[in-house]
């Protein structure tokens, strides 16, 4: 019996989802489009970024929005040596937890840096905005290390 050459073919399966953002996430994304970062205040006084729709403690709807700074502190990170196609940056980068000035919790985003050695807990970072902002999380192109004076 002769060897069978198996047929093989690539294909793409796409789910073209759209999502309604609601008054809280919508507010956050509207802020990003305007190059501003908006959080909200929880019942315990903490400023949460990105804003959450319901209070983490009482589950009450939250509506007091607070603008925070575009600089912050590196709380934690994970270095990615080999970025994949779906990753936001093509060269090695870090997934980072960044606590923005004025916020009481850290948010996750990508951090551009020359190398893992350049990173340290407590390092100061700053938003690098996308060339064009459209109201999406990628309006923050990434965070970058802030040169300390």
């Amino acid at each position: 019996m002769q060897a069978t050459e198996h047929l093989s073919q690539t294909f793409e399966l796409g789910f073209t989802y759209t999502r309604s953002t609601g008054p809280v996430v919508g507010r956050f994304l509207t802020g990003l489009r305007d190059r501003r970062i908006i959080g909200n205040r929880g019942s315990d006084g903490r400023v949460l970024v990105p804003p959450v729709e319901y209070d983490p403690v009482t589950a009450a709807a939250l509506d007091e929005f607070v603008e925070v700074g575009e600089e912050g502190t590196l709380v934690s990170w994970c270095w990615v040596n080999e970025p994949r196609a779906a990753h936001p940056l093509a060269k090695p980068f870090a997934w980072a937890m960044v606590q923005l000035d004025g916020a009481d919790v850290a948010m996750i985003h990508c951090l551009e840096a020359p190398g893992e050695d350049a990173l340290a807990t407590g390092a100061r970072v700053k938003v690098s905005w996308a060339a064009e902002t459209i109201g999406f999380i990628t309006d923050i192109r990434c965070f970058t290390l802030l040169e300390e004076a």
Binding site: T4, S8, T10, F11, E12, T18
Partner: peptide, 25 residues
């Protein structure tokens, strides 16, 4: 501008399907 009320969040899955012996036949 109008506030943001929605986003597009498509998911694209890239496969390579290799037919086995019987499906190839």
């Amino acid at each position: 501008k109008e506030p943001v009320t929605g986003i597009k969040s498509p998911v694209y899955l890239h496969y390579r399907f290799t037919a086995g012996k019987a499906p190839t036949r």
